[in-house]
Design a protein around this nucleic acid. Structure first.
Lengths: 149, 149
DNA sequence: CGGCATCCTGCGGGATACTG
DNA sequence: CAGTATCCCGCAGGATGCCG
Protein backbone atom coordinates (compact mmCIF):
# COMPACT_ATOMS: atom_id res chain seq x y z
CA UNK A 1 0.00 0.00 0.00
CA UNK A 2 1.55 3.18 -1.17
CA UNK A 3 0.82 6.83 -0.30
CA UNK A 4 -2.93 6.91 -1.00
CA UNK A 5 -3.33 9.34 -3.90
CA UNK A 6 -2.42 11.86 -1.30
CA UNK A 7 -4.36 15.09 -1.83
CA UNK A 8 -1.31 17.26 -1.53
CA UNK A 9 -3.02 20.04 -3.33
CA UNK A 10 -6.72 19.49 -2.77
CA UNK A 11 -6.25 21.18 0.55
CA UNK A 12 -9.84 22.15 1.04
CA UNK A 13 -8.77 23.53 4.39
CA UNK A 14 -9.49 20.33 6.25
CA UNK A 15 -6.62 17.90 5.85
CA UNK A 16 -3.76 20.33 6.27
CA UNK A 17 -4.45 22.03 9.57
CA UNK A 18 -2.85 19.25 11.55
CA UNK A 19 0.28 17.26 11.07
CA UNK A 20 1.33 18.35 7.63
CA UNK A 21 1.63 21.95 8.66
CA UNK A 22 3.92 20.95 11.49
CA UNK A 23 6.11 18.81 9.27
CA UNK A 24 6.19 21.62 6.79
CA UNK A 25 7.33 24.12 9.38
CA UNK A 26 10.20 21.84 10.22
CA UNK A 27 11.17 21.76 6.58
CA UNK A 28 11.02 25.50 6.42
CA UNK A 29 13.04 26.02 9.54
CA UNK A 30 15.83 23.75 8.52
CA UNK A 31 15.60 25.87 5.45
CA UNK A 32 15.99 29.33 6.98
CA UNK A 33 18.13 28.18 9.81
CA UNK A 34 21.55 27.12 8.55
CA UNK A 35 22.00 30.22 6.43
CA UNK A 36 23.35 28.30 3.48
CA UNK A 37 20.47 26.07 2.47
CA UNK A 38 18.15 29.03 2.20
CA UNK A 39 20.16 30.40 -0.67
CA UNK A 40 20.25 26.97 -2.24
CA UNK A 41 16.48 26.83 -2.24
CA UNK A 42 16.15 30.35 -3.51
CA UNK A 43 18.59 29.50 -6.24
CA UNK A 44 16.79 26.39 -7.35
CA UNK A 45 13.48 28.16 -7.38
CA UNK A 46 14.68 30.91 -9.66
CA UNK A 47 16.18 28.30 -11.93
CA UNK A 48 12.93 26.40 -11.98
CA UNK A 49 10.78 29.48 -12.07
CA UNK A 50 12.42 30.86 -15.15
CA UNK A 51 10.35 31.16 -18.25
CA UNK A 52 11.10 27.77 -19.79
CA UNK A 53 12.75 25.26 -17.46
CA UNK A 54 9.64 23.60 -16.14
CA UNK A 55 8.04 23.43 -19.56
CA UNK A 56 11.02 21.64 -20.97
CA UNK A 57 11.38 19.31 -18.02
CA UNK A 58 7.74 18.41 -18.19
CA UNK A 59 7.89 17.76 -21.91
CA UNK A 60 10.87 15.51 -21.40
CA UNK A 61 8.83 13.76 -18.72
CA UNK A 62 7.01 12.05 -21.58
CA UNK A 63 10.24 10.57 -22.88
CA UNK A 64 13.41 11.62 -24.70
CA UNK A 65 13.04 14.20 -27.43
CA UNK A 66 15.14 15.82 -30.09
CA UNK A 67 15.88 19.50 -30.34
CA UNK A 68 13.37 20.57 -32.93
CA UNK A 69 10.84 18.16 -31.57
CA UNK A 70 10.99 20.06 -28.32
CA UNK A 71 10.93 23.35 -30.11
CA UNK A 72 7.80 22.43 -32.04
CA UNK A 73 6.17 21.01 -28.94
CA UNK A 74 6.67 24.15 -26.93
CA UNK A 75 5.90 26.33 -29.88
CA UNK A 76 6.85 29.87 -29.06
CA UNK A 77 10.31 29.44 -27.62
CA UNK A 78 13.31 30.91 -29.42
CA UNK A 79 16.26 28.69 -30.36
CA UNK A 80 18.43 30.75 -28.14
CA UNK A 81 16.32 30.19 -25.06
CA UNK A 82 15.79 26.53 -25.80
CA UNK A 83 19.51 25.98 -26.24
CA UNK A 84 20.57 27.87 -23.16
CA UNK A 85 17.88 26.36 -20.95
CA UNK A 86 18.86 22.89 -22.10
CA UNK A 87 22.49 23.71 -21.42
CA UNK A 88 21.75 24.81 -17.90
CA UNK A 89 19.66 21.74 -17.23
CA UNK A 90 22.45 19.59 -18.54
CA UNK A 91 24.97 21.40 -16.41
CA UNK A 92 22.86 20.78 -13.34
CA UNK A 93 22.70 17.09 -14.17
CA UNK A 94 18.95 17.13 -14.72
CA UNK A 95 18.99 16.15 -18.36
CA UNK A 96 21.38 14.25 -20.60
CA UNK A 97 22.40 15.19 -24.11
CA UNK A 98 23.18 12.44 -26.60
CA UNK A 99 24.57 13.21 -30.03
CA UNK A 100 24.07 10.65 -32.79
CA UNK A 101 26.46 11.57 -35.59
CA UNK A 102 24.29 10.90 -38.60
CA UNK A 103 24.07 13.58 -41.24
CA UNK A 104 22.53 15.79 -40.43
CA UNK A 105 23.33 14.88 -36.84
CA UNK A 106 20.53 14.33 -34.36
CA UNK A 107 20.63 15.18 -30.67
CA UNK A 108 18.43 13.59 -28.06
CA UNK A 109 17.63 15.10 -24.72
CA UNK A 110 16.33 13.02 -21.85
CA UNK A 111 15.73 13.44 -18.16
CA UNK A 112 18.33 11.91 -15.90
CA UNK A 113 17.28 10.07 -12.79
CA UNK A 114 17.62 13.32 -10.85
CA UNK A 115 15.53 15.03 -13.52
CA UNK A 116 12.72 12.55 -13.07
CA UNK A 117 13.11 13.04 -9.40
CA UNK A 118 12.60 16.76 -9.73
CA UNK A 119 9.49 16.15 -11.75
CA UNK A 120 7.71 14.81 -8.69
CA UNK A 121 7.66 17.92 -6.50
CA UNK A 122 7.24 20.07 -9.58
CA UNK A 123 4.18 18.19 -10.71
CA UNK A 124 2.73 18.60 -7.25
CA UNK A 125 3.22 22.30 -7.54
CA UNK A 126 1.75 22.26 -11.01
CA UNK A 127 -1.26 20.41 -9.71
CA UNK A 128 -1.65 23.02 -7.03
CA UNK A 129 -1.51 25.75 -9.64
CA UNK A 130 -4.17 24.08 -11.75
CA UNK A 131 -6.41 23.37 -8.81
CA UNK A 132 -6.19 26.88 -7.43
CA UNK A 133 -6.24 28.77 -10.65
CA UNK A 134 -9.83 29.88 -10.27
CA UNK A 135 -9.46 30.90 -6.65
CA UNK A 136 -6.51 33.05 -7.58
CA UNK A 137 -8.30 34.57 -10.52
CA UNK A 138 -11.24 35.33 -8.24
CA UNK A 139 -8.97 36.84 -5.59
CA UNK A 140 -7.36 39.01 -8.21
CA UNK A 141 -10.49 40.43 -9.72
CA UNK A 142 -11.89 40.95 -6.26
CA UNK A 143 -8.74 42.82 -5.27
CA UNK A 144 -8.70 44.85 -8.46
CA UNK A 145 -12.34 45.70 -8.00
CA UNK A 146 -11.91 47.19 -4.55
CA UNK A 147 -8.54 48.92 -4.87
CA UNK A 148 -8.73 51.41 -7.75
CA UNK A 149 -11.30 53.26 -5.68
CA UNK B 1 -1.93 5.75 9.42
CA UNK B 2 -1.04 8.70 7.32
CA UNK B 3 1.35 8.99 4.37
CA UNK B 4 4.50 7.49 5.88
CA UNK B 5 6.97 10.38 5.95
CA UNK B 6 6.77 9.95 2.27
CA UNK B 7 10.16 10.32 0.64
CA UNK B 8 8.90 12.65 -2.03
CA UNK B 9 12.32 14.02 -2.47
CA UNK B 10 14.63 11.36 -1.20
CA UNK B 11 14.13 9.68 -4.52
CA UNK B 12 17.09 7.42 -4.23
CA UNK B 13 16.01 6.02 -7.55
CA UNK B 14 14.06 3.17 -5.99
CA UNK B 15 10.63 4.35 -4.89
CA UNK B 16 9.88 6.55 -7.87
CA UNK B 17 10.30 4.27 -10.82
CA UNK B 18 6.84 2.78 -10.46
CA UNK B 19 3.49 4.30 -9.79
CA UNK B 20 4.47 7.83 -8.89
CA UNK B 21 6.00 8.43 -12.26
CA UNK B 22 2.81 7.31 -13.94
CA UNK B 23 0.64 9.53 -11.80
CA UNK B 24 2.99 12.36 -12.43
CA UNK B 25 2.77 11.91 -16.17
CA UNK B 26 -0.96 12.17 -15.91
CA UNK B 27 -0.60 15.42 -14.06
CA UNK B 28 1.74 16.71 -16.67
CA UNK B 29 -0.47 15.71 -19.55
CA UNK B 30 -3.56 17.29 -18.18
CA UNK B 31 -1.21 20.18 -17.90
CA UNK B 32 0.01 20.41 -21.48
CA UNK B 33 -3.18 19.15 -22.97
CA UNK B 34 -5.96 21.67 -22.54
CA UNK B 35 -3.88 24.59 -23.72
CA UNK B 36 -5.11 26.89 -20.97
CA UNK B 37 -3.86 25.24 -17.82
CA UNK B 38 -0.33 25.11 -19.14
CA UNK B 39 -0.17 28.87 -19.13
CA UNK B 40 -1.69 28.92 -15.66
CA UNK B 41 1.07 26.70 -14.36
CA UNK B 42 3.74 28.62 -16.16
CA UNK B 43 2.30 31.78 -14.69
CA UNK B 44 2.25 30.51 -11.15
CA UNK B 45 5.77 29.19 -11.43
CA UNK B 46 7.17 32.50 -12.53
CA UNK B 47 5.30 34.18 -9.72
CA UNK B 48 6.65 31.69 -7.24
CA UNK B 49 10.05 31.53 -8.83
CA UNK B 50 10.62 35.24 -8.62
CA UNK B 51 13.37 36.39 -6.39
CA UNK B 52 11.40 36.86 -3.18
CA UNK B 53 7.94 35.28 -3.16
CA UNK B 54 8.88 31.95 -1.67
CA UNK B 55 11.14 33.47 0.94
CA UNK B 56 8.35 35.69 2.16
CA UNK B 57 5.75 32.96 2.10
CA UNK B 58 8.02 30.65 4.03
CA UNK B 59 8.80 33.29 6.63
CA UNK B 60 5.11 33.91 7.09
CA UNK B 61 4.73 30.17 7.51
CA UNK B 62 6.08 30.69 11.02
CA UNK B 63 3.26 33.05 11.85
CA UNK B 64 2.11 36.61 11.10
CA UNK B 65 4.81 39.25 10.85
CA UNK B 66 5.05 42.99 10.47
CA UNK B 67 6.66 44.79 7.61
CA UNK B 68 10.04 45.62 9.07
CA UNK B 69 10.11 42.36 10.91
CA UNK B 70 9.97 40.63 7.56
CA UNK B 71 12.49 43.01 6.13
CA UNK B 72 14.96 42.34 8.89
CA UNK B 73 14.31 38.62 8.71
CA UNK B 74 15.06 38.41 5.03
CA UNK B 75 17.90 40.83 5.29
CA UNK B 76 18.91 41.96 1.86
CA UNK B 77 15.58 42.77 0.28
CA UNK B 78 14.78 46.33 -0.73
CA UNK B 79 11.64 48.02 0.58
CA UNK B 80 10.41 48.32 -2.93
CA UNK B 81 10.62 44.63 -3.64
CA UNK B 82 9.20 43.66 -0.28
CA UNK B 83 6.25 45.97 -0.77
CA UNK B 84 5.49 44.92 -4.31
CA UNK B 85 5.89 41.21 -3.60
CA UNK B 86 3.58 41.50 -0.62
CA UNK B 87 1.09 43.39 -2.75
CA UNK B 88 1.09 40.70 -5.39
CA UNK B 89 0.67 37.97 -2.81
CA UNK B 90 -2.21 39.88 -1.31
CA UNK B 91 -3.78 40.35 -4.70
CA UNK B 92 -3.56 36.62 -5.35
CA UNK B 93 -5.28 35.94 -2.04
CA UNK B 94 -2.25 34.19 -0.57
CA UNK B 95 -1.62 36.59 2.27
CA UNK B 96 -3.73 39.04 4.25
CA UNK B 97 -2.78 42.56 5.23
CA UNK B 98 -4.08 43.99 8.50
CA UNK B 99 -3.51 47.59 9.47
CA UNK B 100 -3.65 48.50 13.15
CA UNK B 101 -3.97 52.27 13.36
CA UNK B 102 -1.69 52.98 16.30
CA UNK B 103 0.89 55.71 15.93
CA UNK B 104 2.97 55.00 14.17
CA UNK B 105 0.67 52.45 12.51
CA UNK B 106 1.63 48.81 12.36
CA UNK B 107 0.81 46.41 9.55
CA UNK B 108 0.63 42.69 9.94
CA UNK B 109 0.96 40.20 7.14
CA UNK B 110 -0.25 36.64 7.47
CA UNK B 111 -0.79 33.67 5.23
CA UNK B 112 -4.37 33.00 4.23
CA UNK B 113 -5.68 29.46 4.14
CA UNK B 114 -4.71 29.29 0.48
CA UNK B 115 -1.30 30.61 1.40
CA UNK B 116 -0.75 27.83 3.89
CA UNK B 117 -1.97 25.48 1.25
CA UNK B 118 0.66 26.67 -1.17
CA UNK B 119 3.30 26.15 1.45
CA UNK B 120 2.86 22.40 1.22
CA UNK B 121 3.99 21.79 -2.36
CA UNK B 122 6.52 24.56 -2.01
CA UNK B 123 8.11 22.98 1.02
CA UNK B 124 8.32 19.71 -0.88
CA UNK B 125 10.19 21.48 -3.60
CA UNK B 126 12.37 23.22 -1.04
CA UNK B 127 13.15 19.88 0.53
CA UNK B 128 14.10 18.55 -2.86
CA UNK B 129 16.39 21.51 -3.41
CA UNK B 130 18.09 21.00 -0.06
CA UNK B 131 18.44 17.28 -0.53
CA UNK B 132 19.87 17.56 -4.02
CA UNK B 133 22.03 20.58 -3.51
CA UNK B 134 25.23 18.62 -3.39
CA UNK B 135 24.40 16.45 -6.36
CA UNK B 136 23.71 19.55 -8.39
CA UNK B 137 26.87 21.25 -7.25
CA UNK B 138 28.79 18.12 -8.16
CA UNK B 139 27.12 17.94 -11.57
CA UNK B 140 28.00 21.55 -12.19
CA UNK B 141 31.64 21.36 -11.35
CA UNK B 142 31.91 18.13 -13.28
CA UNK B 143 30.31 19.81 -16.28
CA UNK B 144 32.45 22.91 -15.95
CA UNK B 145 35.54 20.77 -15.65
CA UNK B 146 35.00 18.91 -18.90
CA UNK B 147 33.58 21.67 -21.12
CA UNK B 148 36.05 24.56 -21.16
CA UNK B 149 38.42 22.22 -22.94
C1' DC C 1 6.63 52.74 10.90
C1' DG C 2 5.19 51.52 6.32
C1' DG C 3 5.02 52.88 2.49
C1' DC C 4 4.86 55.41 -2.63
C1' DA C 5 7.65 58.05 -6.57
C1' DT C 6 11.67 58.56 -9.23
C1' DC C 7 15.88 57.58 -11.46
C1' DC C 8 19.13 54.28 -13.37
C1' DT C 9 21.26 49.88 -14.52
C1' DG C 10 21.85 44.94 -15.84
C1' DC C 11 20.44 41.24 -18.05
C1' DG C 12 16.63 38.21 -19.62
C1' DG C 13 15.24 37.09 -23.66
C1' DG C 14 13.37 37.95 -28.66
C1' DA C 15 14.70 38.52 -33.85
C1' DT C 16 17.80 37.72 -37.23
C1' DA C 17 21.66 35.85 -39.76
C1' DC C 18 25.50 32.62 -40.26
C1' DT C 19 27.96 27.66 -39.62
C1' DG C 20 29.15 22.40 -39.53
C1' DC D 1 19.33 19.55 -38.04
C1' DA D 2 21.30 21.70 -34.19
C1' DG D 3 23.31 24.92 -32.94
C1' DT D 4 26.57 29.88 -32.29
C1' DA D 5 27.00 34.92 -32.74
C1' DT D 6 25.20 39.62 -32.68
C1' DC D 7 22.15 43.21 -31.94
C1' DC D 8 18.70 45.40 -29.30
C1' DC D 9 14.90 46.32 -26.29
C1' DG D 10 12.07 46.07 -22.01
C1' DC D 11 11.61 45.63 -17.44
C1' DA D 12 12.96 43.49 -12.95
C1' DG D 13 14.77 45.37 -9.37
C1' DG D 14 18.43 48.26 -6.51
C1' DA D 15 19.38 53.11 -4.43
C1' DT D 16 17.70 57.14 -2.84
C1' DG D 17 14.48 60.52 -1.17
C1' DC D 18 9.86 62.18 0.45
C1' DC D 19 5.06 61.45 2.99
C1' DG D 20 1.15 60.15 6.71
Amino acid sequence: MKPPQNPVHGCTEAAQNGRDIARMKDEMNKFHGPEGSCEAVSDMLSRIGDKWTVLIVSYLGNGPMRFNELKRGIGNISQKMLTSTLRNLERDGLISRTVTPTRPPSVEYALTEMGHCLLVPVSNLAAWAVDNRERIAAARSSYDARTPE
